[in-house]
Computed example of a mutant assay.
Amino acid sequence: MTAPVALVTGAARRIGASIARLLHKQGYQIIIHHNRSTEAANLLVTELNQIRATSAISLQADLNNHTEVQQLSDQALNWQGKVDLLVNNASSFYPTPVEQSSENQWEDLLNSNLKAAYFLSARLSASLKQHQGCIINLIDIHAQRGLPDYPIYSIAKAGLQMMTLSLAKELAPSVRVNGVSPGPILWPEAEAAINNNEKNAIIEKTLLKRTGCPEDIAEAVLFLAQQQFITGQILAVDGGKSLFSH
């Protein structure tokens, strides 16, 4: 029996890299998708292949480019002849105040967070069906309650949430489709200037009064990948932030 193959988008760094490492530890062959983080992706591939030879590769694709999304799915299938697990983790995240928002921002955020995930799922669906596979989408608790100043991002993640529910129906009974909605895990790199008062205010709005870590998300992804009787569900890994009453 051949090892299962997982494609993780945006897997070179941060949460995506944690997901890739944990799946690899569980015996998966790993396809690490990246766009600009080539060096980090190659380092991670080397790390994983030193643990288990020829068990990981990296594939580059700009998820804003539909042709490259199609090529990514084809290259992923060509590597081992199948894909058993698709983790749509890649995401763009930045503020788009309504008055200053642009069509380019709309295209970028919708493509990276929603369109690419949909068409990767569609193009890999035949292989996923054949191997009783699974799709796991990284959503966001703000898909249900929009993040102020981030309307386009919130809209895109809300679309990804509905895509999860819709594809769970469309691809049943052969393919399970679930989502993970992280809360405060890693502070966004683009907002390195966020001050401690702002961080503390966010943490105070969690029931557990702390941030999570990337491994918390990776373990949730692994759990959903292994559970054969769960589909169409979205697991909030947010320290209770989505239940916090304002």
Rank of each mutant, 00 (worst) to 15 (best):
117 A>C: 04
117 A>T: 03
117 A>Y: 06
117 A>D: 04
117 A>F: 06
118 Y>K: 10
118 Y>I: 12
118 Y>N: 09
119 F>W: 05
119 F>D: 02
119 F>A: 00
120 L>R: 01
120 L>A: 00
120 L>E: 00
120 L>W: 00
120 L>H: 00
120 L>M: 00
121 S>R: 03
122 A>S: 11
122 A>Q: 15
122 A>H: 14
123 R>F: 05
123 R>W: 06
123 R>V: 02
124 L>A: 02
124 L>E: 02
124 L>H: 03
125 S>L: 07
125 S>T: 07
126 A>M: 10
126 A>D: 11
127 S>H: 00
127 S>P: 01
127 S>G: 01
127 S>W: 00
128 L>V: 03
128 L>I: 02
128 L>K: 03
128 L>G: 01
128 L>T: 03
129 K>R: 15
129 K>F: 10
129 K>Q: 14
130 Q>F: 13
130 Q>Y: 13
130 Q>C: 11
130 Q>D: 12
130 Q>H: 14
130 Q>W: 12
131 H>K: 10
131 H>G: 07
131 H>F: 13
131 H>W: 11
131 H>C: 09
131 H>D: 07
132 Q>C: 08
132 Q>I: 06
132 Q>R: 13
132 Q>P: 06
133 G>V: 05
134 C>W: 09
134 C>P: 08
134 C>H: 12
134 C>T: 11
134 C>V: 09
135 I>H: 12
135 I>M: 10
135 I>G: 09
135 I>R: 13
136 I>F: 03
136 I>C: 03
136 I>M: 04
136 I>K: 04
136 I>S: 05
137 N>H: 09
137 N>M: 08
137 N>V: 06
137 N>E: 07
137 N>G: 07
137 N>F: 07
138 L>F: 07
138 L>A: 07
138 L>G: 07
138 L>K: 08
139 I>N: 12
139 I>P: 09
140 D>W: 00
140 D>Q: 01
140 D>E: 08
140 D>R: 00
140 D>K: 00
141 I>M: 06
141 I>D: 02
142 H>P: 05
142 H>W: 06
142 H>D: 04
143 A>H: 04
143 A>R: 05
143 A>D: 05
143 A>G: 05
143 A>K: 04
145 R>V: 12
145 R>D: 08
145 R>S: 10
145 R>G: 06
146 G>R: 15
146 G>S: 15
146 G>K: 15
146 G>C: 14
147 L>Y: 02
147 L>F: 03
147 L>W: 02
148 P>A: 14
148 P>G: 11
148 P>D: 14
148 P>F: 14
148 P>I: 12
148 P>V: 12
149 D>F: 14
149 D>R: 15
149 D>W: 14
149 D>A: 13
